[in-house]
Design a protein around this nucleic acid. Structure first.
Length: 325
DNA sequence: CATCAGGGCCCTG
DNA sequence: CAGGGCCCTGAT
């Protein structure tokens, strides 16, 4: 039974130009989950913010050079102006609406491989709609699993501990609070077929409930401190930390970690070799550092998403073999 | 039917 | 610091 959200407020956003609405709000490389849905010009997204369940709808009301985005916010009860103001700031942060891409565009416009990609996706920025806690759950669900299994595990968690929200004539799942999951035992979690990850969920959730990790405080910490703090969490290793540093904490300069499956894809993309005989990680990093100096994460991200947009329209033979559904 | 690796991480030796 | 074990699932 879904929770109906009757109240609706609107917030207008004017992101820095250039701003590509669709490529910022939809990342085809991400696995699908039932807390959001995208179609050109619109993204629905649920959110648990400061203990309040929200139904968001992002709509493109501008152009790349004259950006304007309208966000409708549905809720159970009327929202206070202070709350709205806080939410607005949080969305600006998570969706990187204040990011100035011009130095990046200027520096890399003449790169023969990246240049055309930058033209195609001008104004696109990295984006993670998750809180740190939620992202950690996703990262753990991704570990050592095929995409389909990851999707199933996250859905099982939504169904057991999250909410179902009805707004704008649609229905979506929403995340749970750490406090809610803290009531679940490891055995109970295992029944959701998450396997050994149950222990990681319990320990990570505990760390949040007990205040050992604080997202807002970490945002202003040094990258070393962020890395150390994340690695201290049980079930969180270098691969998860790499994703979190870039997606949640917006550390886009360095490629902190390249996992084997990414290594294969990069080898094909940047050295045009058979992914089954990949180029050493060090060689990849050296190339990124030389060509994209200071913007490694951003630049590689553009080429990565460009590939997955292509795949959305037509299968990319060599890539299909590397993505286990 | 059985076997195996998968978009890691922990723990042990 | 290398390598086995971990849960479950779908592919072979």
């Amino acid at each position: 039974m879904a929770l109906f959200l009757p109240f609706c407020e609107q917030i207008d956003f004017y992101p820095t130009a250039p701003f590509n609405f669709d490529a910022t709000l939809h990342k085809p490389s991400h696995f699908p989950s039932t807390d959001n849905f995208w179609e050109p010009g619109v993204r629905w997204q649920t959110m648990l913010w400061q203990g309040t369940l929200l139904g968001l709808k992002f709509e493109n009301r501008g152009t790349v050079d004259q950006p304007r985005m309208q966000v409708s916010v549905w809720s159970q009860s009327r929202l206070e102006p202070d709350f709205i103001a806080g939410l607005e700031a949080e969305l600006r942060y998570r969706y990187n609406l204040d990011l100035d891409l011009e130095p990046f565009n200027r520096a890399l416009a003449s790169d023969p491989q990246l240049g055309p990609v930058l033209d195609r996706w001008r104004g696109t920025r990295p984006m993670s709609y998750c809180s740190l806690y939620e992202y950690l759950i996703v990262a753990i669900v991704l570990q050592n699993a095929t995409v389909r299994r990851s999707v199933n595990m996250l859905q099982a968690l939504f169904d057991a501990y999250g909410a179902r929200l009805a707004y704008d004539g649609k229905e979506f799942s929403a995340y749970w609070s750490p406090e809610r999951l803290a009531q679940a035992s490891e055995e109970e979690l295992r029944r959701l077929k998450v396997g050994y990850r149950a222990k990681s969920f319990v320990r990570v959730t505990q760390a949040f409930v007990q205040g050992q990790i604080d997202e807002m405080r970490l945002r202003s910490a040094s990258i070393e401190e962020q890395r150390k703090s994340l690695l201290s969490l049980y079930g969180v290793g270098p691969a998860s930390v790499g994703y979190i540093l870039s997606d949640v904490f917006h550390r886009w300069s360095a490629m902190s970690h390249i996992s084997p499956w990414e290594q294969k894809i990069y080898s094909r993309l940047f050295f045009d070799v058979d992914p089954e005989t990949p180029v050493p990680v060090e060689k990849l990093k050296a190339l990124f550092a030389e060509r994209f100096s200071g913007y490694e994460g951003l630049a590689v991200g553009y080429i990565w998403e460009d590939l997955f947009w292509r795949r959305k329209h037509e299968p990319v033979d060599w890539l299909e073999r590397l993505i286990r559904l």
